[in-house]
Design a protein around this nucleic acid. Structure first.
Length: 587
RNA sequence: CUGCCCGUAGCUCAAUCGGAUAGAGCACCGGCCUUCUAAGCCGGGGGUUGCAGGUUCGAUUCCUGCCGGGCAGGCCA
């Protein structure tokens, strides 16, 4: 086990710095891996940083630093380059040492030390009012990969789904299902255009009948429609017509609650449960699991919503206007104040969200990450404002926005609304593209970048998806190791000095960056870095594979090369695991 | 109108918190399978990083102003 060359180099530089410029001894030593191979294995801009305070030529300073650099077997060559960079080329043994490190650490190579920092990641949190669609899929893939990256980097991660089981949308779904159910008994009520149209609602209507027969069917169409304003003509799109449709829907919901009485919560619960288990199954198949499903309704049941608003009120951040309670969020960076309790006494969604975040803080997380769709960006100031108003530290909460995924089919954008009934579900997408390609594709770009998901491309040319490129590298290693047929333990004893050629050393350098890459991906909330790294690692491997044979007659060389291949395989497995992608033995 | 995000090769995207000659894939052109998997490799052409300024040794990155695209601005969830 050798120590990290980066740390050792930094120590050497620190010593040199101390003797060249004692006054500047606290200058941070920044070591980076140059993009270009002929710039060595590590480079520092230390001399450039010192040039200004010392008022000296950076190249001269670089030369001075090198002259004072303590000797080390680690370093093969140093040079001053460009404007005043110092480039280091490592000794071959220092480069290949990573192979034995990987073999010794196995799946733990690259894993960060336990940080004892509790991080909560909340993601997906889609309304349980219909199947997940491709937009949710992106949030799911991003959240799951981010969680896994953080966990791998050493954080203690809790994955959580916030279930919006309270509120009007769930009532609309319960009503929609009930109306479909009633139709099955010949009780025909015109289906409202703003109710949930999807086929899955018909299915739930049938399921409801299978489970409870005619228990909820003891009504007449006239009773259900009693007191409703009726529906305007379908082609009317004016505001008045829209408003009438909403009123009609609310009246139907009120009738449903009145007519069903104590049975309404049964229907509501039935519908909620169907949707939740459907979503859980869907996400599970996608490799996305949650540690906790947090119910919005529970915030009301435990009185936390009331308490949160009361707490804000005690601090003097709430006022009454037009019969409603307003949170003075404009005093906390929001552009205007927000209603937390409506004139009719009902709390707004925002109020329960305040309570939810209060609950998160009370659970003692050191950091919380909310993953939202980018359309919610305007929501950030009010939530952070509420947190600050409650006297809690807003900087513990990070909101990661995920841009929309836009689906293209036949070169045309495809609608994804859950209300229109025409949308592409995550299930359909997974079936067409496959889970592996799907997970990889979703995370292959920065989260704040728009995602054009071309279905035809994903479907017809799925073999060209980059995920296969990475998996293929893994399968190739497996194949070679199988044909060799030896024991993995033999590889640990390989003489790594046999690894001499450029491609082998490049592979070693690539492997050596994996631990810091994991850290960087975690720090930046950027799991896409893992995906790009795996592509690069696979490219280095394929290039080497085509240029050199592993199963050669020279026993020492063979073992060394197999050891390197096995190290590559291990890192591919670790990286793919973080992304929720399988690593097949053969393809 | 106001706020946030984004403009990088023909297309889809990277670029190590300000670094050196801006990189991949797809597409296009030319090579490599009697040898460990050709879902692969090697080579080639392709760019004023939207535009104009500013900050400094150095800018795709930071600041200002324009241009263009997306999203948001409910007592909805």
């Amino acid at each position: 086990m050798s120590a990290d060359p980066k740390v050792l180099l930094a120590d050497l530089l620190k010593a040199a710095l101390k003797s060249v410029a004692p006054d500047q001894a606290d200058t941070p030593i920044l070591l980076e891996r140059p993009k270009q191979a002929n710039h060595g294995d590590f480079a520092t801009n230390l001399a450039l940083q010192l040039a200004k305070p010392l008022k000296r030529n950076p190249r001269e300073l670089a030369a001075l630093l090198l002259a004072e650099l303590p000797p080390s077997t680690l370093v093969l060559k140093t040079e001053v380059a460009g404007a005043g960079f110092i480039n280091f080329t490592l000794a071959t043994a220092a480069k290949t040492a990573v192979v034995s490190e990987v073999l010794a650490a196995g799946a733990d190579f690259g894993r960060g030390a336990k940080k004892n920092v509790k991080v909560q990641v909340e993601f997906v949190s889609a309304n349980p009012t219909g199947p997940l669609h491709v937009g949710h899929g992106r949030g799911a893939a991003y959240g799951a990969s981010l969680s896994d990256v953080l966990a791998f980097a050493g954080y203690d991660v809790t994955r959580e789904y916030y279930v919006n089981d309270a509120g009007r949308q769930m009532d609309i779904l319960a009503l929609s299902t009930w109306l479909r159910y009633l139709a099955g008994f010949g009780i025909e009520i015109p289906f409202p255009p703003n109710a949930y149209q999807g086929d899955y609602v018909l299915g739930m209507g049938c399921d409801l009948r299978d489970a409870h027969q005619d228990r909820f069917a003891g009504v007449t169409a006239a009773q259900v429609l009693e007191g409703t304003p009726g529906l305007p003509l379908a082609d009317r799109k004016d505001d008045e017509a829209k408003q009438q449709r909403e009123l009609h829907l609310d009246a139907l919901i009120a009738n449903a609650k009145r007519l069903l009485g104590d049975d309404y919560p049964w229907v509501h619960g039935f519908v909620l449960n169907e949707q939740l288990s459907d979503g859980r199954e869907d996400l599970g198949e996608f490799g996305v699991r949650f540690d906790k499903w947090f119910s919005e309704q529970s915030l009301f049941d435990t009185g936390l919503v009331e308490r949160a608003v009361a707490q804000l009120e005690q601090q003097g951040h709430v006022y009454l206007q037009n019969g409603a309670r307003w949170f003075r969020s404009s005093a906390f960076g929001d552009e205007k104040d927000r209603v937390v309790q409506r004139e009719n006494g009902l709390y707004t969604y925002f109020a329960s969200d305040i309570a939810y975040h209060l609950n998160k803080y009370e659970r003692g997380f050191d950091r919380m990450i909310d993953i939202w769709g980018a359309d919610h960006h305007g929501y950030i100031p009010r939530v952070k404002g509420a947190i600050a108003a409650l006297g809690l530290p807003p900087e513990k909460l990070d909101v990661a926005l995920v841009q929309f995924a836009v689906l293209y089919r036949d070169g045309q954008k495809t609608s994804m609304s859950t209300r229109s009934g025409e949308f592409v579900t995550l299930r359909e997408l997974r079936k067409e593209v496959g889970n592996d390609a799907c997970r990889f594709f979703y995370v292959l770009r920065k989260s704040d970048q728009h995602l054009d998901f071309d279905l035809d491309l994903a479907k017809s040319q799925s073999n060209e998806n980059p995920v296969y490129y990475v998996q293929y590298a893994h399968a190739r290693v497996c194949s070679v190791l199988n044909q060799w047929g030896g024991e993995r333990a033999e590889l640990a004893a390989a003489d790594l000095g046999q690894l001499q050629n450029e491609r082998e050393l490049a592979l070693c350098a690539r492997l050596a960056t994996f631990p810091e890459l994991v850290q960087s991906a975690a720090d930046d909330y950027a799991p896409h870095q893992i995906a790009f790294y795996l592509k690069d690692l696979a490219a280095d491997f394929h290039s080497w594979y085509n240029a050199e044979r592993m199963l050669v007659d020279d026993e020492a060389l063979k073992l060394a090369r197999l050891a390197l291949a096995e190290a590559v395989r291990q890192v591919l497995v670790s990286g793919l695991a973080v992304l929720g992608v399988s690593a097949p033995q053969s393809m």
